[in-house]
């Protein structure tokens, strides 16, 4: 599946004041980076794309996925995945249950478990299905989160400062893994960051805000 993510004349305001504007298209497998310091509205833009913008904001414009307008759809029907900088693995579920939560329904229990195990093996975490998420290292947690998003079969991927809490060595590894896997699946990626190195590593277009 190859989709194009389009933000068409998006303008988000807060009490009449413009917070952020965007008008861009991201091709399948490409990464668009929006750079800027905290408070310029980067995460607000991602909230608009995921359909979770707070009531305090007013937004105009459209989000299109392969030409289809998804602006009015609820978050669970948009097929847009997101990765945050913090570990947002559900702490009451095992690693395997976290992954199964993201998978589309269907199949027997055994088939789903097998799919989870195979996916974990793909990212070098074989045998981690029963682990407590709180016992994972930062790098392992980041990989499980990525896997969970990919297993939900998104049509676009958003990265909200996704690498900023990782140490330098892991950061490079995880960044490469994310970009490679997104490219392999032809996912358009919209990344917001304040880190120039992340932007450079993405290798795509960079829009800088709030200088």
């Amino acid at each position: 599946m190859s989709d194009v993510l389009t933000l068409e004349q998006v303008c988000i305001t807060d009490g009449g004041q413009t917070v952020i504007e965007a008008d861009c298209t991201i091709a399948p497998g490409d990464v668009l980076t929006i750079m800027g310091p905290s408070g310029v509205g980067k995460s607000t833009l991602l909230a608009f794309v995921t359909g979770t913008l707070k009531r305090a904001f007013t937004a105009t414009g459209r989000v299109l996925l392969d030409g289809a307008d998804i602006t009015a759809l609820p978050p669970h029907r948009r097929q847009v995945g997101i990765l945050y900088q913090d570990d947002i693995l559900f702490p009451h579920m095992s690693v395997g249950q976290n992954l199964a939560f993201g998978m589309a329904p269907g199949g027997t229990r055994a088939e789903r478990r097998a799919a989870v195990s195979a996916a974990l093996a793909e990212i070098g975490l074989e045998g981690f299905a029963h682990r407590d998420p709180a016992t994972l290292s930062g790098g392992q947690a980041a990989r499980v989160q990525l896997l969970r998003v990919l297993l939900s079969q998104p049509r676009a991927l958003l990265l909200d400062e996704a690498f900023s809490r990782l140490d330098t060595e892991r950061r490079t590894q995880i960044r490469r893994l994310v970009f490679d896997m997104a490219r392999d699946r032809d996912l358009p990626v919209l990344m917001v960051t304040h880190d120039a190195e992340d932007a450079k590593a993405a290798g795509g277009r960079i829009i800088t805000l709030g200088d």
Partner: peptide, 13 residues
């Protein structure tokens, strides 16, 4: 963000 992540993974409210 737990709700956002769960929602983007396809979970209805």
């Amino acid at each position: 963000r737990n709700a956002v992540v769960a929602g983007t993974l396809g979970a209805p409210p």
